[in-house]
């Protein structure tokens, strides 16, 4: 059982790393500001989400597991608003010089 849970952790955390990689590649490769914002919000939020998911079976107690979920939820909220704020800022011309 513990072996199975460890396997789950390894798969999910590795998946999270993959999406952090994708997010960074997108941030560096995508051609314009707004497109890059997609890479930032979506890939990295998923990356963190998978890492949190993978860590759940390793948590010492239920409280820290719930805390992990709360951290994930806060990051979702932060990502959803930050990406829009940066997008609005960039579109108003604050992005260009």
């Amino acid at each position: 059982m513990s072996l199975l849970l460890d396997l789950f952790t390894i798969v999910a955390v590795s998946g999270g790393l993959f999406f952090f990689l994708a997010g960074t590649v997108g941030l560096l490769r995508f051609p314009d500001t707004l497109t890059r914002l997609h890479a930032l919000t979506k890939a990295d939020n998923l990356g963190l989400g998978l890492i949190v998911l993978g860590l759940l079976p390793q948590c010492p107690d239920i409280v820290s597991a719930l805390k992990l979920v709360a951290i994930w939820a806060l990051v979702q909220l932060g990502g959803a608003t930050a990406s829009q704020l940066i997008a609005e800022f960039a579109r108003r011309g604050g992005g260009e010089r």
Binding site: F19, A22, G23, R29, F30, A43, N45, L46
Partner: peptide, 26 residues
């Protein structure tokens, strides 16, 4: 539905970012 949507969204970005041709029509 959020986690599932997040997964699809992330896969979508990853596919475009990592593909050599970088299929984008923004």
């Amino acid at each position: 539905r959020l986690p599932g949507q997040s997964l699809i969204a992330g896969l979508d970005v990853a596919r475009r970012a990592l593909s050599p041709a970088m299929p984008l029509r923004p």
